[in-house]
Each structure stands twice: as C-alpha cells, then as structure tokens.
Design a protein around this nucleic acid. Structure first.
Lengths: 148, 148
DNA sequence: TTTTTGTTGCAACTGAGTCGCAACTAGAAC
DNA sequence: GTTCTAGTTGCGACTCAGTTGCAACAAAAA
C-alpha cells in the first residue's frame, strides 16, 4: 500500500531526488502545490496550500524550498509588474521562456511565446557575449478587453 | 541673483512644473539626484544623496516622489534580477526602451538597445491586441569577463 | 541499528515601503 | 505685498515579505 505522497510523485520531486536532494514531508507538500498550481502563486499562498496536506509546514521552509528550486533553475520568480504589492510569484520553469503581460486595469495575466523573444536572446548572447541563465520579460498595459 | 536650485533646473523639474505639479525644496533635491545619477540607485541611496542638498528630506518623501514620477511615466522601476536583496532601482525614462543584463558573478549591469526588442513589442501590441504602457526585460547570467 | 549530515519549526529579527496626521508652504487670487 | 487654500512634508508608528540562528529532528548511507 503506497503512501499518499508517493501516489502523486511529480516530476519536480523526481528531478530533485535524482540530483541527490533529500526528500521530506514538507518538501513534498510544497512541490505538490507548485506543480499542480493553475495560476501564479506567491509565498504565502503556497504556504497556505501546502499546510492543507501538511499542517506543520512553516513559512521559513517555504522560502528555503523556493530558494532551493531557484538555485536548481526549476522555477522562475516573477514580479507581475507589482500589480498587488511588491511580493514575488513563482511558476514551474518549462521548456520555452514566455512573456508575461499584466493588465493594469483588470489584473489579468496573459502569457505569450514568441520566436522573436528567442531571437532577441540569441542576439544578446552573440553580440554582447553574455551567457544567459534567466531572462524575464514583463509587460504592463491594457488587455484586449480593457483597452479603449 | 538666481537661487542655486534654479541654476540646475533639469528637464524632470521642468516637465513636472509644466504639468501643474508644485515644486518644493525636497522635490528639487530628489529630482536632482535622479537626474544626475550615473548608475541605478535604490530609494535609500536616493535619500542619502538628496539629504546632502536638503538634510531635512524624509524617507517617506522619497517614496512619495518616486510614486509621483512613476505615475507620470518619467522613471522606470527595476529589480536588476534581485542581485542585492529585493529592493527596487530607479532610472530616468528616456526615449528608447533598453534591456538590462545583470552579471550573477560580478554584479555588473549592462544596458543594451535592440530593434528586435521593439519588433517583439510591436508583435505583442498587434497579435495580442495589448496596449503596452511599460515593458521591462531583465536578464541574469554571466558577462564577457565572468563567463568561462 | 547506528551514524552522519541535511532539514525543520520556531521565534526573533531586518529592512522596504506605507499611512495618518498636524504643521507647513507654493502658488494663485486679490 | 497679503491672504488663502489645497497640495506637500516630516514624523512616528505600522505592515509585511523575507531572513537567520539554533536546538530538535529525520532521511538516507553505512
């Protein structure tokens, strides 16, 4: 009879174990939240959701786990144009970088993938001889509905 | 005999007066700092420099003035990839948007202007029907000197 | 089972940014 | 120049995100 947490292993957990990172209850809870999130979450939202599967999880563990994931390049940290205060939002890092557009009126976040973004990054790598680790393009403005 | 502050009027000050914004001693001091800065400054650095021309300037006035300038679209707010904590940096907004590249090793900030960036923004405006107010592209990685 | 080493909860702390308020003042009106 | 008023300021208290030192704990190796 498998334990509940091993029934939903998730790629994040597998990737970390694979790299020799120790797996614990609080970590499984936090990774699960990040992996199943359907929108961008900030640290306190991740904490609240993680506590639903492991009520003992502490704020500091959330921050430490987010730090771990950042260091391993498994999540991206976003500001979303500071629409709601100065905190940060997190999302699973997947294959292709994408752009975040934040509507200054309704708050909607739109994501967009563009080959022109990749082309721009290539230009930076080549012309500036800069090795890109992470690139973040955030745009603030008015979405289709809110523009007049 | 002109007063010292009117000898270095600055475009920022002129632009604000032109828009009917009241000009005060603390404001002149803060605008002067932003205008003559040769690198990206955060709020506490702006405070310290502003206090050299007007020692009574308070932290809250710096934040309020930065808010004013942001609302008028006269400055840009940057994170510079959170190289030093989670605070914000400010710079005078000039004609063309530029990219900020932050070296994760030596901390150097490189600015770069690219027509591909403008092309990408046009694509967002057209294909996503999104009206861009502000666009911020920040890149973290290794500069020419620090890459191996 | 024991050992080692990384991880955790806790509580105290730091530092950026905000806010309400009474005192003040820039600039307009006279 | 004097008066008036609405916008601005310094102050002090506050909020909130994120960090840290530490003793207790537990995953995984031996």
């Amino acid at each position: 009879m498998p334990l509940p947490e091993t029934e939903i292993p998730g790629r994040l957990q597998a990737l970390l174990v694979q790299r020799g990172i120790r797996m614990t209850g609080p970590r499984r809870a936090i990774l699960g939240v990040i992996e199943t999130a359907n929108k961008h979450l900030d640290a306190s939202q991740i904490l609240r959701k993680a506590q639903k599967s492991d009520p003992s999880v502490d704020r500091s563990t959330v921050y430490r786990t987010l730090g771990l994931l950042k260091r391993h390049g498994l999540i991206d940290e976003l500001d979303l144009m500071h629409l709601n205060g100065d905190g940060h939002y997190y999302e699973r890092k997947l294959g292709q970088d994408h752009i975040h557009m934040a509507c200054l009126r309704c708050g909607k976040i739109t994501e967009f993938v563009s080959e022109r973004f990749d082309s721009l990054k290539s230009q930076l790598e080549q012309e500036c001889r800069f090795r890109i680790v992470v690139a973040r393009l955030e745009v603030g403005g008015y979405c289709t509905v809110c523009r007049r």
